[in-house]
């Protein structure tokens, strides 16, 4: 552990910054895609529903790494579009995780009571007004906990870009490994770094969830989110502890 010089640490921390940037940009693109596709899947016209469903099946069906390779190696040869590696990565991550996100958006919209929609029609709201003023505000809090899981998947997905030579944490680790000639310390360190990033992401999303739930007058559910077991005192798990208690009492 102590073998890492300041210069090598700097490589890793530069990588952390690139990973954070990648996560933020891909999440922004992914959220945009998720909302557009998710809303389009509830459209009245079958052709819009079909096309958005097709998009989702294609981008969810294929592997993010293969998609990344395709954008990086095939687009320049086949179409003559040479993307900067960073943006090819953001595009591939945003498009594929956006497809996963569109299911979250669609599910949350479908969970809003139909009477809300009907009330909007009765008050002669336009479809756009119904979406923005009635459906989305109520669906939003439902979206946050699954979006948290997806964001952590995205954060983990950013490690793939190192394969394309983008200087993220994993790429930095490969350089440090070559410099040190030893793998155990550096890979342990970066696993912990990813874990800390995931932990921070969960904290932020918990705050977003609290705010979103408060906006429609609900308290956040206890024990949600990926890291719940580390962050929230574990409630006595009913059956086994009941058993041991009753066995002890008897």
């Amino acid at each position: 552990m102590t073998d890492l010089t300041a210069g090598l640490w700097e490589l890793l921390f530069k990588g952390v910054w690139v990973t954070v940037q990648l996560t933020v940009f891909s999440a922004a693109l992914g959220a945009f895609v998720a909302f557009v596709v998710g809303v389009a899947r509830t459209n009245r016209l079958w052709i819009v529903r079909f096309l958005s469903g097709l998009y989702m099946e294609i981008f969810r069906g294929t592997s993010a790494l293969v998609l990344m390779f395709w954008m990086f190696f095939v687009l320049p040869v086949a179409f003559g579009w040479q993307l900067v590696p960073m943006w090819a990565a953001v595009l591939a991550l945003g498009l594929s995780y956006g497809a996963y996100g569109s299911e979250i958006v669609r599910g949350a919209l479908a969970a809003v009571a139909p009477a809300q929609q009907e009330a909007g029609i009765a008050l002669s709201f336009s479809p756009w007004q119904r979406l923005v003023k009635i459906q989305l505000p109520q669906a939003w809090p439902e979206m946050v906990p699954p979006a948290n899981n997806l964001l952590i998947e995205l954060l983990k997905g950013t490690a793939l870009v190192s394969v394309l030579g983008v200087g993220d944490i994993t790429f930095g680790a490969a350089l440090v490994r070559n410099a040190l000639g030893e793998s155990a310390p550096v890979y342990t360190i970066i696993l912990v770094m990813y874990f800390i990033l995931a932990f921070l992401l969960t904290r932020v999303m918990r705050a977003v969830e609290r705010k979103a739930k408060a906006g429609i007058g609900q308290a956040p559910q206890k024990g949600q989110g990926v890291l719940r077991k580390l962050t929230i005192p574990r409630q006595a798990d009913a059956p086994s502890s009941d058993l041991s208690k009753s066995a002890g009492g008897a």
């Binding site: 994993t170 890979y187 990813y194």
Partner: peptide, 11 residues
């Protein structure tokens, strides 16, 4: 669960 599979593979 909260760390990337790719890094685990390298590890």
């Amino acid at each position: 669960r909260n760390t990337p599979l790719l890094v685990q593979l390298f590890f």
